[in-house]
């Protein structure tokens, strides 16, 4: 007892410390409650259905902001399923997402002019390594070679820039491609969304911004030479964001999902009457791709089952 008196204050202070611990514990425990799943309407992403993703939509449902888009008088071209040889004479232009298609996709026969960080602001400034051609600028490439199909997917690196300026610049590039390759069809791919978590935490790279840009660039489509397709229908989750199961870095697909994208591109092919005329049944100089039915396509691509 004598000793207790000697240390009584220390012991009592210690006990008081111990007493406050349950309270601290309770507070921590309470605040550690599992988080509720994000609400469905958290994302302010516009419904993807408003984004034109087939030829008819592109021509008939142009955004209100672009009423001047002409409605073609000719019956619109329909998307068709083709085999991968369709891409023998295709050129893909784009940023890191297109780099992903070139590296991990199944369309090794296509040509690619792409690089990480590519944007409408630096597209003409740098030369890139192009298969069978070498290091070349876009202008030189388009002068040197003629392509039948040009796929373009740019926009995510531009999200920090002024919106109208980006759209104008993008339009200039599309016109430039038309001018340099008048016989090619141009297929604009909408920018792939980012995951919901990224969209909610980033200042620029958000799905509403991507949707706004996609909506604007989709209006360049004329249903005749320029078309718009939106790969987000393939990879979105229920919130209209990139499904986190398909991405480890919130922005890019993991390598194993690019074949799905390529398979999907095979179902979104535009076959102009000129191309159809040069069908595989023609003499050997003709392109070797053939139009296949969707059933055939599904059978030929096992990855498509997960689409």
């Amino acid at each position: 007892m004598k000793k207790f008196k000697l240390y009584s204050y220390t012991i009592l202070l210690l006990i008081s410390m111990l007493l406050v611990c349950p309270w601290i514990f309770a507070q921590i425990w309470k605040s550690s409650r599992p988080q509720k799943p994000p609400k469905q309407n958290v994302s302010t992403a516009e419904p993807t259905t408003t984004t034109p993703n087939d030829v008819q939509d592109t021509t008939m449902n142009s955004p209100d902001a672009q009423p001047q888009t002409e409605i073609p008088t000719e019956p619109p071209l329909q998307f068709q399923n083709v085999s991968t040889s369709y891409f023998d004479d295709a050129l893909f232009i784009g940023d890191s997402r297109t780099v992903g298609i070139s590296e991990y996709g199944t369309l090794k026969n296509a040509s690619y002019f792409c690089n990480t960080g590519m944007s409408v602001y630096n597209l003409g400034k740098k030369s890139e390594q192009v298969k069978d051609v070498g290091n070349i600028t876009l202008e030189a490439l388009l002068t040197q070679k003629q392509y039948a199909k040009i796929y373009i997917m740019l926009g995510i690196n531009e999200l920090g820039y002024e919106f109208n300026q980006t759209v104008t610049k993008y339009h200039e590039w599309v016109n430039y491609l038309r001018e340099k390759q008048p016989d090619a069809i141009i297929i604009i791919q909408g920018n792939l969304h980012v995951t919901l978590s990224r969209s909610q935490t980033d200042s620029y790279i958000t799905n509403p911004n991507i949707n706004q840009l996609n909506s604007a660039i989709s209006s360049f489509a004329d249903g005749e030479h320029i078309f718009y397709i939106d790969p987000n229908e393939l990879f979105d989750d229920e919130t209209g964001s990139l499904n986190p199961l398909f991405s480890n870095d919130t922005v890019h697909l993991t390598g194993s999902h690019y074949p799905e994208w390529c398979g999907w591109l095979c179902t979104k092919a535009i076959v102009t009457p000129e191309m159809a005329a040069a069908s595989p049944t023609e003499p050997p100089t003709a392109p070797s791709w053939e139009i296949i039915t969707s059933d055939e396509y599904l059978q030929s691509d096992p990855n498509n089952n997960s689409v």
């Binding site: 220390t10 202070l13 210690l14 410390m17 111990l18 406050v20 601290i24 921590i28 605040s31």
Partner: peptide, 18 residues
Amino acid sequence: TPIYILLMFVTIMMNFLT
């Protein structure tokens, strides 16, 4: 999580006294 500052203080005090 400002309560962690309190926890840190209590931890120091507790170990000091012990």
